[in-house]
Amino acid sequence: MTGKTHIMGGIASCSAIAYYYGFDPVLMTASGAIGALIPDICHTKSKIGRTLPLLSKVVSTVFGHRTFTHSLLFMLIMFLITAAYIPNKSISAGLMIGMASHLVLDAWTVNGIKLLFPSAIRFRLPLYMRTGSFSEQLVLAGLTIVSCYYFYELFHGRIS
Rank of each mutant, 00 (worst) to 15 (best):
T5E: 08
V146Y: 00
F117M: 02
L72G: 09
G64L: 10
L72N: 00
Y20W: 15
G22C: 06
L103M: 14
L54K: 14
R158L: 15
G35D: 00
V62C: 05
Q137P: 03
A16L: 15
Y149A: 08
L140T: 11
G22D: 10
S147I: 01
L127E: 03
A120G: 08
P87G: 09
G22V: 08
S135N: 14
I77P: 04
C42L: 01
Q137M: 12
D106E: 08
S135V: 11
G49K: 03
K4H: 10
H65D: 09
I41A: 05
F79R: 12
F151A: 02
Y149M: 06
G32S: 06
V146L: 12
S71C: 10
M1I: 09
I121S: 11
M99I: 12
T82A: 15
W108C: 12
G142I: 04
A36V: 02
F117V: 06
I11W: 04
H6D: 08
A18W: 06
K89P: 12
I77S: 08
Y128I: 05
A100R: 05
T44L: 05
Y149W: 13
L95Y: 02
S147Q: 05
I7G: 01
V58M: 12
P25R: 13
L154S: 11
L72E: 00
V58N: 01
M99W: 00
L72K: 07
Y21L: 14
F23A: 10
S56M: 07
I86N: 03
F23W: 01
D40Y: 09
A12M: 06
H6S: 03
I91D: 00
G9I: 10
K57W: 12
Y21E: 11
H43R: 06
H43P: 03
I159L: 15
K45M: 07
S101C: 01
M28D: 05
S71Y: 02
